[in-house]
Design a protein around this nucleic acid. Structure first.
Lengths: 221, 221
DNA sequence: AGAAAGAGTGTACGCTGTCCACATTGATAG
DNA sequence: CTATCAATGTGGACAGCGTACACTCTTTCT
């Protein structure tokens, strides 16, 4: 981060204010979630007057959007890392199952390791499927989940007729648990307890998606 | 709502400012979620000077907490209404299953019918299990879910060893879907589509909680 | 060299939450 | 019946926020 004000900075130009603001914004989001991404504080830390930000971002929301995309990318990368850590020599069916679990586990680990960034990532309702917020594979977190489910179908572990919309069901479960853990009644649980609960949740998703016996409850309205 | 200012109001005293502020706060939350619960705007609508609020609420957060409790109560009541609408002559096992579905359906319907209140209800991390935010049965939304799961165990539809923590798994799934629907990629779906997805989700929860064949995936870490 | 465009500064406005001192009231004690 | 007191509402103030407008400094392009 460059110097703190014009006099100390020496130069009238800053150099790369846009990038600096983004990095500061990320730091703020990390520490305090979306509400902590405050334009004036960001410019202060960048050593620049508040209005300078408007040369690079239309308004506070634009900065927040950029931070949000970065947070989504970080989440995607965390999920990819969890996938990459899987053994490469498993049989296809076990591999497909393990991949879905890795997607969920990576998601939950990130939420717990970086709650501020996690909350920021989902503070903007867009960008979830847009071109932004991708990891090194070019997929968003959502895309990674969809791909894992496709692989599950290809491996025969998920009936194709149950595939459509399944990403929403799986995402609901994992995202909901993440919320409970970072600022719901489950905050305060230690890492191991959360991990166990996460694995039980993933069991539920796997069982529930594949569909055990009898299909959906008859007579539902 | 009483008159808009002292001159029109006539009386120096307001009458029941605390209640008025709470009601206005609920209206604001309904329309715009937690961020719309703005102290100055609430006092403006109550026809009173901003500082008057501090005689009844310690600060903005205290007002928001009160609104949050009310929103939680409204959610509990919506869920109770869904339960009450169930037929009373079903066999116990079917009744227990239907009750769990009603809990989830009521939750999702409320989120969709009152997104502002719903978001407000979960904007304060406490109050989820405290004495506040209860419905006519005296239970919080969380308590209603727990009771439905207990009934499921009593009816034999859920093995007792799977009961502990099951409320967190079920809640995760339903809450996550609610989030997707009110400000995630699923907003914009019409009522019927959401209902269908909700029922599929509840199928997944039912299947996944009861545990089909073989129990959890072996070899999970 | 001079003009044009880009980047940062300075000032200002309205909005917010909140603190302080003051005014008005209804209830209560003598 | 009146003096007092605690509760309640008012008025003015401050800092912090997002943001609009006009200005200046610096680089770049003709």
């Amino acid at each position: 981060m460059p110097d703190r004000d014009t006099s100390r900075r020496g130069t009238y130009r800053h150099g790369d204010l846009r990038r600096t603001l983004l990095e500061v914004g990320i730091a703020l989001a990390r520490a305090g979630g979306p509400d902590a991404v405050v334009l004036r504080e960001a410019t202060r830390r960048a050593g620049v007057v508040p209005n300078a930000a408007y040369r690079h971002f239309a308004d506070r929301q634009a900065l927040l959007n950029a931070v949000c995309s970065t947070a989504l990318s970080a989440l995607a990368i965390a999920m990819e890392a969890e996938i990459a850590a899987l053994p490469h020599d498993s049989p296809p069916l076990a591999a497909a199952r393990a991949r879905l679990r890795a997607v969920g586990t990576g998601y939950l680990r990130f939420a717990q390791a970086e709650p501020g960034l996690f909350r920021t990532a989902f503070s903007v309702p867009d960008n979830l499927d847009g071109p932004a917020g991708v990891g090194t594979s070019g997929l968003t977190p959502f895309g990674l989940l969809a791909a894992a489910l496709d692989a599950l179908v290809a491996a025969g572990a998920l009936p194709p007729e149950r595939r459509p919309g399944a990403e929403f069901l799986a995402w609901s479960a994992v995202h909901g648990l993440a919320m409970l853990v970072i600022d719901g009644p489950l905050r305060g649980l230690d890492r191991a307890q959360i991990h166990d609960l996460g694995q039980r949740l993933l069991d539920m998703v796997e069982q529930g998606l594949a569909g055990g016996g009898g299909g959906p409850t008859p007579g539902r309205d």
